[in-house]
Nucleic acid binder design. Structure first.
Length: 280
DNA sequence: CACTCTACCTGTGCGC
DNA sequence: TGCGCACAGGTAGAGT
């Protein structure tokens, strides 16, 4: 499940790798599954991408945006990519152009290809004139947001912390793994209403989100049962139900919150303050 | 507004 | 061995 740290790791690899995607010219676009292209036809996608040059890449939340300098029509367009559950982007030799779950391949100069694989086929690619067409629906990037803005956005919120942090219009980039890890680090129960948080708990939440994401970026993402082989971020609670809490040794438990598996330490992340409030 | 549910996908792992 | 099924989860959109 690529979330902000994994997507950032992809971006850095494409920008800083050898060769870099920056400066690469698209010779040909092969779409192996039409549904990967969203909002325009495969033919339109090919027509606009072929001949174009990658000249900028940035990330917002879990989206990657690639600026393409075009040869005809408007000077630039943007290719937006969301990896969703199982999507992966690689810059590799054209000898490795297709594997069983390859969804599209952009053939580049020098026998390189940008390859998009996606076992579950939820991932999507769009072409937009302006990234704001996508980012306007999103909150600030969860790693870029500073404390004052985070606290400002948190004030007035009354929703439970788990669905709130998963909501990409609140902050963009957290998914199920890093929400559970952030709430564990903040010692906050996922069912707590944001309205019940004291000032010190609000600051703890910001510090936890920022600290978890920064650490995970430094680790090039997580490693869940070997799924993200590139990353080495050690999860404390995610899918670790039945194992001891790394802080207190209490067994990690799993709940369902909304439709999501939710993992926590029942001792470190107690609901005591809520119970105390209800006892008045 | 807040929430719940469904659809979109497919590999995995379980019980029988 | 193999079948059926629940499950994993990000997001959009519909419904309560």
């Amino acid at each position: 499940m690529p979330e902000l740290p994994e997507v950032e790791s992809v971006r850095r690899t494409l920008v800083d790798g050898t060769p870099s995607l920056l400066g690469a010219v698209v010779l040909k676009a092969d779409i192996l599954r039409a549904s990967v292209v969203d909002g325009l036809s495969v033919e339109q996608f090919q027509q606009r991408v072929e001949g174009a040059t990658f000249d900028q890449i940035f990330r917002h939340g879990k989206y990657l945006f690639f600026r393409l300098k075009q040869v005809r029509g408007t000077p630039f367009c943007w290719m937006a990519v969301h990896l969703r559950m199982t999507g992966r982007l690689f810059l590799v030799s054209e000898k490795l152009a297709v594997v069983p779950h390859t969804r599209f391949v952009l053939h580049l100069e020098h026998h390189q290809v940008l390859r998009f694989d996606d076992q579950r086929a939820f991932g999507r690619v769009w072409l937009v004139a302006d990234p704001a067409e996508v980012t306007s629906r999103l909150g600030p990037d969860a790693l870029a947001i500073d404390k004052s803005e985070f606290l400002q956005r948190l004030s007035g919120q009354r929703r439970q912390l788990k669905p709130l942090l998963l909501d990409q219009s609140f902050v963009a980039g957290l998914g199920n793994i890093y929400v559970d890890e952030s709430l564990f680090r903040a010692r906050l129960h996922p069912l707590r209403s944001a309205a019940t948080l004291h000032a010190d708990e609000r600051e703890r939440l910001f510090a936890a989100v920022h600290g978890v994401l920064q650490h995970a970026v430094d680790c090039k993402g997580a490693n869940i049962n070997g799924v993200f082989e590139a990353g080495s971020f050690p999860v404390a609670v995610y899918q670790r139900n039945g194992t001891p809490c790394p802080v207190c040794g209490t067994l990690i438990v799993k709940l369902r919150v909304g439709q999501r598996g939710t993992h926590l330490c029942p001792a470190c992340q107690s609901m005591n303050s809520i119970i105390a409030m209800s006892w008045g």
